[in-house]
């Protein structure tokens, strides 16, 4: 059954200021659109039968065993170990780009909220780290439903700005994440690629699974500017370049491709999933990517 959010673009959802509402819209829309509930698939696993004792719930009696043996047996399930996921949200200045009102940061916060909603709904533990040049906030993973409120409050409170150097921040972060888990990085990954890859390798060394949602704006991928333009840096004040973008476009796209290829190559080497996202793509695709990753891990 289709859900209303299937037809909502990120730009539409941007109008909803309450992140929790957004997250619920996205996730429930996404789940109801699937043929099989993810809940059935991995949250409860059959373990063994045991003899019925008074006080057990009748609905847990396995009637097929009763039919065969004429005795009451109860089906016992083993509760699955909680997934520990940590969302790493990039709050650097470059995430603040977006010409049509929806910035990459806004897209990332909504995506983070949706992911958190989905994960907590599946009894996974979700934590969150916001950072730019350094770690701004670290919220350890919890699986309580009330924890979602904490995460969303933090997302709504934070504002991007400043420079970024992912490599350094990630190195600093490794010791804080004691238990291995899934790291969901929401970032444009701008910066020095070798340094970033080194930091990611550090995470991998600590046995973390890594899923990177690389957030792009369409302008950054296509460089569609036609008239003379002064590009002013979102991260470093005072850095600006006046140029005819038409003359630079080809070289820019070439450089972009090189950057993306280098990053992708490094991620593959470290078995890291790199999923590029453009801010005009629906969030559901991000959730699908997460689910796919979750299944692989499970």
């Amino acid at each position: 059954m289709a859900h209303v959010s299937d037809f909502l673009t990120p730009a539409d959802l941007q109008k909803i200021s309450n992140l929790q509402v957004v997250a619920r819209q996205v996730v429930e829309g996404f789940c109801s659109g699937m043929h099989r509930s993810p809940h059935k698939g991995f949250s409860v696993e059959f373990k063994q039968h045991r003899q019925y004792v008074p006080g057990d719930e009748i609905r847990h009696i396995d009637w097929r065993v009763f039919g065969r043996s004429d005795r009451f047996y109860i089906r016992e399930y083993e509760e699955e170990t909680n997934l520990r996921a940590t969302i790493l949200l990039d709050m650097s200045g470059s995430m603040n780009y977006g010409r049509n009102g929806l910035t990459k940061y806004h897209y990332a916060t909504r995506l983070a909220a949706s992911l958190a909603y989905l994960m907590i709904g599946q009894q996974d533990s979700v934590g969150m780290v916001t950072f730019d040049t350094k770690i701004r906030k670290y919220i350890p993973p919890r699986s309580r439903v009330s924890h979602l409120r904490v995460l969303i409050d933090e997302l709504q409170r934070s504002e991007p700005g400043g420079e970024t150097e992912l490599g350094d921040v990630f190195h600093d972060l490794v010791p804080k994440l004691h238990r291995r888990g899934l790291l969901v990085i929401l970032s444009d990954c701008f910066g020095d690629v070798p340094s970033l890859l080194k930091a990611l390798a550090h995470f991998r060394h600590a046995h973390h699974e890594i899923l990177i949602f690389q957030i792009w704006d369409r302008d950054e991928l296509e460089f569609p500017f036609k008239q003379w333009t002064q590009f002013e840096s979102l991260e470093t004040a005072g850095v600006k370049h006046l140029l005819d973008p038409v003359l630079l476009r080809e070289a820019y796209l070439e450089n972009l491709e090189k950057f993306r290829a280098e990053l992708l190559r490094g991620c593959r080497r470290h078995k890291i999933d790199l999923v590029p996202f453009v801010t005009d793509q629906p969030y559901a695709e991000a959730l699908a990517a997460y689910i796919s990753r979750r299944r692989t891990r499970g």
Binding site: N96, Q230, F231, E232, L234
Partner: peptide
């Protein structure tokens, strides 16, 4: 035109 640019 002036564009505040991220991918500097």
């Amino acid at each position: 035109q002036i564009v505040k640019w991220g991918a500097m």
